[in-house]
Design a protein around this nucleic acid. Sequence first.
DNA 1: CAACATGGTTGAGTTGTCATACCAATTATC
DNA 2: GATAATTGGTATGACAACTCAACCATGTTG
Lengths: 401, 401
Amino acid sequence: MYKSVDASTMRRFNKQTVLSLLYQQEQTSRVAISEQTGLNRATVSSLVDELIEEQFVEETGLGVSSGGRKPILLRFNANAGYTIGVDVQITHITTVLTDAMRTVVYENQCQLHTRTHPVTAERLFDVLKEEIGLAIKACPPSPHGLFGIGIALPGMVNYATGHVSYLPNLNITEWPIVEQLSLIYPQTVIIDNDANCGAWSVYMTERIKNLIFINAGIGVGAGIVVNGRVYRGRNGIAGEAGHATISTIGILCSCGNYGCWEQYASEQALARYLREQGLDRNQMDEFSPLFVSRCVRKAQDNVQAYSNSLRLLGDYLGIGIANLLQILNPEAVFLSGTVAEAESILLPEIRRVIHHRGISKNKEMLIKIAPQSTVAVGAAGLALAHSIDIFPSREDNELLS
Amino acid sequence: MYKSVDASTMRRFNKQTVLSLLYQQEQTSRVAISEQTGLNRATVSSLVDELIEEQFVEETGLGVSSGGRKPILLRFNANAGYTIGVDVQITHITTVLTDAMRTVVYENQCQLHTRTHPVTAERLFDVLKEEIGLAIKACPPSPHGLFGIGIALPGMVNYATGHVSYLPNLNITEWPIVEQLSLIYPQTVIIDNDANCGAWSVYMTERIKNLIFINAGIGVGAGIVVNGRVYRGRNGIAGEAGHATISTIGILCSCGNYGCWEQYASEQALARYLREQGLDRNQMDEFSPLFVSRCVRKAQDNVQAYSNSLRLLGDYLGIGIANLLQILNPEAVFLSGTVAEAESILLPEIRRVIHHRGISKNKEMLIKIAPQSTVAVGAAGLALAHSIDIFPSREDNELLS
DNA sequence: CAACATGGTTGAGTTGTCATACCAATTATC
DNA sequence: GATAATTGGTATGACAACTCAACCATGTTG
């Protein structure tokens, strides 16, 4: 609980400061690092030498000078090592392999649920092994090899314990998945909720310290970054905003309650709106992964039922997002998941609702779309951040003022 | 942005570790501190000597031994200095003076809004000066004197900038109150939302790192503590959960929207429920500060309209709290404000609703009542924490692993 | 009263940063 | 083209703060 600081802690801390600065900047020099960190030039030299020795950093030539010796340019070594990220969705699995700078160097999709192989924990485990195996094969040689494996799961999982509590649409409960995978892979293995992975992914690239990532597909979940770290709450189930009530006398939800946001802002809700607009099930293939994009196409073709339904979806997304804004007043909100494919119709609606329902500064909240690969890359990023400390969350730590 | 650590930073850090440990424990010895912090005994001795020199710590005699020299007991010096906390409510102001251990040594209440003096920013400012002046007079002599002044305000205020944005029921907008007060008082002056002060107060005593404090009176607001610090969001307006929608087609709120939680879980809501139960305004003095406690009295006397209304209030409180739980999954929730006076009726209802609506572990969430003085003490505590670092929020800082 | 146990202090040793002087390399100036 | 000025990077000693180990100080136990 109480931690002491000695000389070696001090050095580790400073070394990570230098490393994380190098991670964020394309090219820098020793003197530039010294100026930005406040560390003495001698100290920076010594730390950089160590980092070069460890192959986390490379010298890449000389920079320009304005009357003096040219600086030796330094760069974080993207090839230092690799990380695997897996995004488990209900119908399929996306696996990525990223280098240390989080550039995707390999990507693969596979079906999870097929007629011959319905989903069970065993089936999921087998597919994971298979997919991770493929990614490992695709991993280029590097000084640090594979840093770790991060898995994003759609449901309630506990990052801290590595236990899956409940994956609603996959019918999996109480499963110590990290424990099992760790028997196979010696590297760091971590799991997290898919929205948390997405939120972390966005944080890594955007460096927005307080943000919300909304993953809206079959279900609706939120990932929350507070002060530059994923907020998971006591049991790792923070962000289950899909099961917050937006209508006290609303529709029955799979969770047993009435009026959950998820019942108004998910793919299922979209299908219901379409039915309410007079379409019957056969017309709309609501179980296809392409459901939403087909709806968008139809709306663009001016089929009223579709555009009406999508706008309604946008309204309800906006109401739920506005609620999150009132509670969390973040710096930005990112929307992802299959539903995000309808951004052209949803975003204006969401922005309108937020401008109307939001209080004060929340009216002008930044709402953006995040690409589909965000979650998988975020899963990899969580494993990466677990291995090397390049995402400091200590900027406003008063103790280091 | 990037901070370096040198020997003096290291020492400051360790000194604060020692001080915060002393702050939390009644009595300790140098060796015990050494064991708990991992710091060498020599280092602890040196740090403690400095703290004694600065009069933050006292030696208070000898402890018991089990076969050896008796330890010299150390104690945080409660008399090191004092802090003023002010809780501004719509009808009145509570001012407290606390010692360095947050024990209240002086308390005063005064009317804010009177027939001869309606509330304006000037009026509030005058009353604040008056009340703070009285508290300063009550401040006993001490080595550090007055650490600072903290003011809790009912509305949207920005802790970071010291600006009041909007106090809805006091009709005050855009007011640089800290700036003005700092012209008068040389000490630290800080402001914050009342629920934030309450949340901080609870954190200080309970040391629950992730909690929600709900202040339900005329309005409803939440204070959020994440990772041992108050979470305020981008503009300092996080926690405005009273303006989250719980009913999309609900009642019109003062904020202009429909279905805000505040319209179902505040004193005003209680008054409405009573009216809906057939009571007319004259019977229920809804503008008295004693409104809620009188309602409780009547409910205890088995007047059905009152017990029904209070139960309804409890249900809606429960719905809104459940929403916060799904989103934040905290470790505990504390309820305060005038409405909390009906705890005997509300708490069972709230717990029932949460058990019903909460997902997974949220069902068993700890819900407690916090006393009315919490907010004022928290305001003082914020100013205290601003002056001396005894509430470290760095326990799981990976950098110091 | 000796043996042992525990709390606290002292002084040497270690680690790591800082300041300063210095070398290296390049541009500007005479 | 030689020299001065400028900027980047390195080596060395001073300094600060922590650790370690030995040593007092003061107990309790047999």
